[in-house]
Every structure is written in C-alpha cells, then in structure tokens.
C-alpha cells in the first residue's frame, strides 16, 4: 500500500512484528502488549522502536517511554471511530512527542486533513488512494477556526493580522 511520510511517498523503514513472531533486525513496529512484555530487550537493541496502539489504548499507557519511541502508529479499527484524532493531539501537545505518528487501519480520503491537523505525519494509505489524492485532500479547506497540533494559524489569528 502507498506509504506517505512528510507529504511524500516514502519507503517504510519499520518492520511490523506480530506478537508471537521473533523480532526482526532493524526498526520494528510492535503492539503495546508486545512492547510492555519485551520492553527491556527492545530498549537495549539501540534501534528505532515503533508501537502500534489500538483505538482504546491511550498513549498515556506508554508512560515515560513515549519519548524513547521513534514511531507511534494509531489504529482506526473502522473509520467512524475517531478516538485516534484525540490520541494524536495528546501525543503532540500534552506528551510533547516529536517522532512519527502514523495512521493505520480503516480511514477515508475525507479524514486525511483531520489526521494531518491533529498531528499525524505518516500514513499507510488505503490502496485506492494516491499521493495526488492525499495532497488534494489536505488542500480542500484553506483556513481553520480552531488551533490543533499542526500549528496552523487560525482564522481568529488571521483576522487579528497575526
């Protein structure tokens, strides 16, 4: 599937590792359960670590470890489940996470802009979408009314000439 990082097509450097599979060499993406089980081993490997959170798993469950991660993948189990928007926002603002936040699972073209606004910067795109679609989705609405995690100036700030 198309993988987008920093608004461009990219190669995914992480290997997704199932809970019962052996750890691959290099950067790995594991579930929260796997991370908690093999925490010491993973942190000792000195390679980039990614954790995939289900939509009912708060990033707060990562505790202090969150900033030792390079990637947090947030799952949309179905597109109607909007919890990950708030988890991404929490990661970027309250938890100060600066690594990659990746959207995975079932989401729509029409949600890409909201994901981008709340702090996602990487996407495992649905098969039917292209980079052009992605760019178009982000450009549909020029201005926004409310601050989020993208640092975009709000309409209120634009009105005030800021």
């Amino acid at each position: 599937m198309p993988f987008i990082k920093d608004k461009a097509l990219a190669a995914d450097s992480f290997t997704a590792v199932a809970d019962d599979a052996a750890l691959a060499d290099g950067p790995v993406l594991v579930s929260l359960a796997r991370f908690q089980k093999d925490r010491e081993t993973l942190l000792a490997r000195n390679t980039a670590i990614g954790v995939r959170l289900k939509s009912d798993e708060s990033p707060e469950l990562l505790g202090e470890d969150v900033n030792r991660l390079s990637l947090v993948a947030l799952e949309f189990p179905k597109f109607r489940d909007g919890r990950a928007f708030s988890w991404a926002r929490m990661l970027r603002t309250r938890l100060g996470f600066t690594g990659e936040i990746r959207a995975v699972g079932d989401f729509l073209y029409d949600q890409l802009a909201y994901q981008h606004r709340t702090g996602f910067d990487a996407w495992e795109l649905p098969e039917n979408l292209t980079l052009d679609d992605f760019n178009r989705a982000l450009a549909e609405m020029t201005n926004v009314y409310q601050p989020s995690a993208d640092g975009k100036k709000t309409i209120r700030e634009l009105r005030a000439g800021l």
Binding site: R80, G82, F85, Q111, Y114, M141, V144, Q146, S148
Partner: peptide, 13 residues
C-alpha cells in the same frame, strides 16, 4: 459555532 466547525478532533465522536 466557529470553534466547532470542522473541529478536526470532534467530527467522528
């Protein structure tokens, strides 16, 4: 009304 319009966190509540 303005704050809630297409609020990116709160359109799939």
């Amino acid at each position: 009304r303005q704050w809630s319009s297409l609020h990116p966190e709160f359109v799939f509540l």
